[in-house]
Amino acid sequence: MKRLFVLLFSFLTLTAFAEVPVEGGEFQPGDMITHHIADDYTWHFADGAVVYLPVILVDNGEFKVFSSHSFYDENHETVSYDGYALDHGHIIRVDEAGEPLTDQASLLDFSITKNVASMFVSVVLLFLVFFIIAGRYKNNPKAAPRGIQSFFEPIIIFIRDEIAKANIGPKYERYMPYLLTVFFFIWFNNLLGLMPGGANLTGNIAVTLVLALITLLITVFSGNKSYWKHIFATPGVPTWLAPIMIPVELIGILTKPFSLMVRLFANITAGHIIILSLFSLIFIFKSIAVGPLSVAFATFMNFLELFVALLQAYIFTLLSAMYFGGAVEEHDHAEDHH
């Protein structure tokens, strides 16, 4: 772990400088930062180290697969290809002259973007790590843990005892696979996002939306009688208040996962923006004297982000567990909750 941090740390400053697009024109920190935290069709590690990812389009039910390299000419200028072109990070239909068409309907973009590719990397890592660990448990279940097994075992036990058991109660076992998966998925991707050249996956609203939506679906489908009774006929509330209470409660169901979605997205994106802003200072002041200060602050922020990466994974998992717990709880003491 220590070696990993050192490696991570030593790369941070290098690549951050390398990636800043200063060539030509005035330096626009806003554009640079937006470009960095947004999704992309290429994976830009450093100048010259660019992976062109595949573009997959479904145009009126017709599959089109080609490399994103086709959108760039030899001078790295964007060009149109096969009637499509990049426009502010999106693929649109264009005519032969490269002008956007007015008809953009039913053009679905399934491209393996930088975020998707990064997610695949994280999935490979997750499989690698946890299949190795599972193998160790399977082969000698009673042996003391060793290696990465002893690193992850306390975390798994913590999620089971402090998150699942504490918040869900006796039915916690059903939710363990989701809680563990979501925790390690978020944590791994948060850390990968902090790696040099890493994608801002967990700081992407689509990703957090899907995760929050799954939490919502699990909550709704595991809701028991007393959970629904609380929503549609809240105990202790007069019946004539129902027209107000029911919508409020229904909105409440949605605000919980909405807060999950926004919290993870905002925290991770904010971290990226802060670090990138600190580096931008050097280019804004055009002074090498600002460098050490920026680097010092950015280093501090990076350590903070390492902590935030873990914290946000924990919070997402904890809140999910609390929502599940609320859905399966037997309300014998219903009145105590209000």
Partner: peptide, 14 residues
């Protein structure tokens, strides 16, 4: 742009 979920990523993430 930042808070508009991309369709492709939604699909792949799910």
């Amino acid at each position: 742009e930042l808070v508009t979920p991309g369709f492709g990523l939604l699909f792949w993430q799910t």
